[in-house]
Design a binder for these strands. Structure first.
Length: 418
RNA sequence: GUGGAUGUAGCUCAGCUGGUAGAGCUCCGGAUUGUGGUUCCGGCGGCCGCGGGUUCAAGUCCCGUCAUCCACCCCA
């Protein structure tokens, strides 16, 4: 037996770095006053079809959709934004002071072919700010991610920035692009000919070098923004400059969800393989309305925990080991009881304590204490029981002394906390 | 969905032109009695992914299948 394709277990040793990332994210998001939200693992399928978009690959072929016993069509969430927006609408959060700022740490599900940094179940950290069209908010979100990567030590991070325009400039641009593509249709690859009909913007994702050179001269959305979108974009750039955040404007950056408008951005880590996009997001001013709420501007991002961890590992970053303060060395059957009671009391005051349960020899138990990196070994055997003491050995200095059982707790508490 | 590589002890791997398996690490024990981190010695541990086929004989050749990895694609 083994876990399902594309899934993995997070063993104790794997938890260390992950916890570091999560704690750092919580601190940074909290400092920007984002409140945590959890949404269900599954939603009505319709939410994603309307939110993410019918023409997206995710909806077309990557969703874990199933029917429950009540005949409802449900889908394990493939992304985090639509569920958060649904919650915003459902709970009438438009009546709260705007914008409403939320962050999440959740599992996402996509039926994909697993690869380095790509899984069928993966974890994302994300944030959404709903209810404001202020460009400073776009910048705030971008900077939160930037700070997260930097504070953790993610190496070789690059930011790409673009704008998707809005309903007043994108449709006209798409027609213009379509016209251009149809003119060179014969020279494009098969996929791009398909994209021309379905979602022309996606041709810029084509890795085919022949297409790439042909598309170099194609009109870019970034050069065809309406005045208000251009103004918004310039304002966002102004804030990024203010923060000295380097970025590259990339008119070919097209995110895979249909809900994006105006600002879009993506962080990449050059250390990673093909799946080097570690986080991305943007503005989605039409999504709230799409999901059934009032027209409400919003922006957000998602970042992949696994990819951050992979990037950190490539840079040699590690997490904090679990600490053991005291390890009991039990050398006789009567000692077991005395040790159990002393250990119980220590744990009660927050001292991390453990003992041998494997029937190891005295030498083996010392070895285990060393392996756990215990600060003290408390040895209890026949001699100690007879005298009513415990032998406490400082594993760092190798010095040891006998301590009366009734003051053992105080003795260790004092030294552990120093 | 497409292409390539790989699948041998818990982990990392060796096993040449076919003759029923090895190393290192880990783990347990020992090197004079109840004491760690070095060293030495010993031990535990393997349906050689699974199913067929060829052969007197297959981990080693052939086919299939599953899984993993990498890339396409897509995205976190």
């Amino acid at each position: 037996m083994q876990g399902p394709k594309g899934t993995y277990d997070v063993l104790p040793g794997d938890q260390l770095l992950r916890r570091k990332v999560i704690e750092q994210a919580e601190a940074i998001f909290g400092a920007a006053v984002y409140g945590r939200i959890n949404t269900p693992a599954f939603e009505e399928t319709e939410l994603f079809v309307r939110g993410v978009g019918k023409s997206s690959d995710i909806v077309r072929k990557e969703m874990y959709t199933f029917e429950d016993k009540g005949g409802r069509s449900l889908t394990l969430k493939p992304e985090g934004t639509a569920p958060v927006v649904r919650a915003y609408v459902q709970h009438g959060m438009h009546k709260l002071p705007q914008p409403v700022k939320l962050w999440y740490y959740e599992r996402m599900y996509r039926f994909e072919r697993p690869q380095a940094g790509r899984f069928r179940e993966h974890y994302q950290l994300g944030a959404e700010a709903i209810g404001s069209s202020e460009p400073a908010l776009d910048a705030e979100l971008i900077m939160m991610l930037s700070e997260l990567y930097e504070s953790l030590g993610v190496p070789e991070v690059e930011l790409r920035l673009s704008s998707m325009g809005d309903s007043s400039c994108r449709p006209a641009y798409i027609e213009k692009l379509k016209g251009y593509l149809e003119g060179i249709s014969g020279e494009l690859c098969h996929d791009c000919q398909e994209r021309t009909k379905l979602n022309p913007l996606r041709v810029f994702d084509c890795k085919n070098s022949a297409c790439a050179s042909l598309l170099a001269d194609a009109p870019k959305l970034i050069d065809n923004l309406c005045d208000s979108c251009q103004e918004h974009f310039d304002a966002v750039r102004g804030f990024l400059d203010l923060f000295d955040r380097n970025y590259r404007i990339d008119g070919t950056l097209v995110r895979g969800f249909d809900y994006y408008t105006r600002t879009t951005f993506e962080y990449e880590c050059a250390r990673l393989g093909a799946q080097k996009g570690i986080g991305g997001g943007g503005r989605y001013d039409n999504l709230v309305e799409e999901v059934g709420g009032q027209p409400t501007p919003a922006a957000g991002f998602g970042t992949g925990l696994e990819r951050i961890v992979l990037a950190l590992e490539s840079a040699g970053v590690t997490g904090q080991e679990m600490g053991v303060d005291v390890f009991f060395i039990i050398l006789s059957s009567e000692a077991r009881e005395a040790a159990a009671l002393a250990m119980h009391r220590m744990r009660g005051v927050g001292i991390a304590a453990d003992a041998d349960y494997a029937g190891r020899s005295a030498k083996g138990q010392m070895k285990q204490a060393n392996r756990l990196n215990a600060r003290f070994a408390v040895i209890i055997g026949e001699d100690e029981i007879a005298l009513g003491v415990a032998t406490v050995k400082d594993m760092g200095t190798s010095g040891q002394e006998q301590v009366k059982m009734d003051v053992l707790l105080d003795y260790l508490q004092e030294r552990v906390n120093s």
